[in-house]
Amino acid sequence: MIRHGRQATLQLRLGDDWFTVCDAARLQPGRGAAALLPDGRQAALFLDRDGRAYAIDNRDPFTGASVLSRGLLGSASGRTFVASPLLKQRFDLESGVCLDDEGVTVRAYEVRVGNGE
């Protein structure tokens, strides 16, 4: 979760590498977008209203559908979350922890907004 400048690209940390996804400007604050990762997994990327970027796994563990990127962002007690569009469970965007069922976690990725390589 990093503040981004204008023409910056959004990158995810995969192991030791940074994977460039897209221009940060492609994301609309308050909404998400899905990215296809090299290993076939999907990440859900989000920007909050302050322009911070987040990434978690796109798969909704409760239904198995790859839809978290299509949920709505919200915040409660200072934590930014996405609510799954299917059954509305909320996931903390920094840790991936489900706020409605703490036993369930989705993977959270480190994100940075850089100038692209």
Binding site: T63, V67, L72
Partner: peptide, 21 residues
């Protein structure tokens, strides 16, 4: 504009999401 970011996924995609996305 901003309204798009407020819509539930169904309104956002102008279609009804089903169980497999």
């Amino acid at each position: 504009g901003e309204q798009a970011a407020l819509q539930d996924t169904n309104d956002h995609f102008l279609a009804n999401m089903q169980r497999n996305g």
